[in-house]
Computed example of a mutant assay.
Amino acid sequence: MNPLRWGLVPQILVGVVLGAFLGALVPGAGEAVGLLGRLFVGMLKAVAPLLVLLLVMSAIANRHERGGDARRTFLTLLLYLAGTVCAALVGVLLSFAFPQTLVLVAAAEGSPPAAVGSVLADVLFKLVDNPVRALLEGNFLGCLTWAVLLGISFRRAPASFREHLETLAGGVSDVVRYVIRLAPVGIFGLVAYAVATTGISALADYATLALLLVSAMLVVALLVNPLIVLLVTQRNPYPVVLRCLEESGITAFFTRSSAANIPVNLALAKKLGISEELYSVTIPIGATVNMAGAAITITTLTLAAANTLGIEASLASALVLCVVSALAACGASGVPSGSLLLIPLACSLFGIPLDVAMQVVAVGFVISVIQDSAETALNSSTDVVYTWAVDNAPLRQ
C-alpha cells in the first residue's frame, strides 16, 4: 500500500514513530531535522493571522441575514469560560486526591503578571491593537476586532467587491491546506528534536506530577467535555469529541501552540459542517481565551508548591484558586508554555514567595515536553468541540 495515499492522521503517526527513533538513536541528526518542525510551525503561525482576518471579514460581509449568530457566539464564549473553570476544579480535586511535592530547581527567567487585572487588561488592549501590528505579531484578538468591524462596513460594499473578498479568503484557505499537508514532515522534525534534546531521563524525577497533569486533562477531554456537549446538544457527544481529539488534538500536541493550530481547527470546523459565521469567530477567540489545559497546569503546580512548603490549602482557598486560574488562563499566550508564567500569580494566593514560584515555573519547563503538549491538545480540540455543540444546540430562534 502506498503510504502517500494514507489519511493525514496515519501519516502523522508514522512521522511520530520515525522521529522518535531518529532522535533516540542519532541525537545529532534529530537536532538537525528539528529545522523541519520549526519551519512547519513557523508557516502555520505566519498564515494564521491573515487567514483569520480575511475569513472573518469575508464571512461577515457576505453572510445572509439570519438571527441568533451573536447569541450563539456569546453562548460559545460562556462554554469556554465554564469549561475552563470545570477544568481548574478537576485539577484541584485530583491534586487533593493525589497530593504532589516538588524537587525545586533553579529559578526560571521571566516577568510574571502581578495580578489577574493586569492579565485581563492585556487582553483588552490586544483587542484594540493597530491592525498592521496585530498581523505582524500574531495578535489574533486584534485581527478579529478589525475583521469584524471591516466586515460589517463591507456589507454595504458592491457585490463584486464582496465576491473578490470571498475569493481572496478562499485563496488563503488553499494555502493553509497546502501547509497542513506538510504536517507529517513537520511533526517528524518536532518529535526528533524533542527526543534528541530532552530525552526521557529529564522527566524521571517528575513522572508522577506529569502523570497527574495528563490524567486531569484526559478526565476533562473524555468526561467533562462530553458531559457539557451532551447537556447543550442532547446528543451523543463522543463521535465529535473523539474526532476533534484525532484531527485537532494530535497536531496541537506536537506543535504545542494554539495559535499555530488555528488553521487546522478552521479546516476541521468546515468539515464538520459548522456554520462559518460561527466558527470563523469562535475558533480564533478560543485559541486565546479557551484554556482548560492551562487552568489545570496552574492549579496543579500551585498546589504542589503549597504542599512542598507545608502550606495547607483549605477548600475555600482552593475554590478561589479555581476562579483565579480560570481567569488567568484566559489571558495565557497561545504559544508553547504560555501558561507557566501565570503560576506565580496563583502562588501569591498562598503567600508563596516569588523566587520559589519561579522555581516551580522551571519545573514546568522541565516537564513541558509532556505537560504543554497535552495542555495544547486539550485547549485546541475543545475549541472545535464547544463550537460544534453550540451550532448543533436546539436553540429557539
Rank of each mutant, 00 (worst) to 15 (best):
V323Y: 05
A357T: 14
L303P: 00
A305F: 08
A305C: 10
A305V: 06
G331D: 10
S337L: 03
L309D: 06
I298S: 00
S325K: 07
P353N: 13
V289Q: 04
I343A: 00
I283Q: 12
L345H: 12
T297A: 12
L309Y: 12
P336Q: 07
C322F: 02
I352A: 11
T302W: 13
T302N: 13
L340V: 05
I311M: 07
S348A: 15
A304V: 08
P284K: 02
L315W: 03
N290D: 15
L321C: 03
A304Y: 07
L303S: 02
S348N: 15
G286W: 00
L342V: 06
I296H: 06
A346T: 05
I298W: 05
L321G: 00
L309G: 04
L301D: 02
P284H: 00
I352M: 14
L340T: 02
N290H: 13
G351V: 13
S348H: 14
I298R: 04
A332D: 12
Q359F: 11
P353A: 12
N290V: 09
I311Q: 06
G331V: 09
C322L: 00
I285E: 03
A295H: 09
S337Y: 06
G310H: 08
N290K: 10
E312G: 01
I285S: 01
I343C: 01
G293P: 11
I285C: 01
G334S: 05
P336T: 08
S317E: 07
A316E: 06
M291F: 12
L354W: 14
V320H: 07
A294P: 08
P353L: 13
S339N: 12
A313M: 10
A328K: 00
G334E: 00
A332Q: 10
T302E: 12
P353K: 13
E312V: 01
L345I: 12
A316C: 01
L301N: 04
L342Q: 06
G293A: 11
A292P: 15
A305G: 14
A313E: 07
G286P: 01
S348L: 13
P336F: 02
V289A: 04
P353Y: 13
I285N: 04
L319K: 00
I343H: 03
A346L: 04
A292K: 06
A294R: 05
T308M: 10
G310K: 09
A294H: 06
L354Q: 15
S339W: 08
A357M: 13
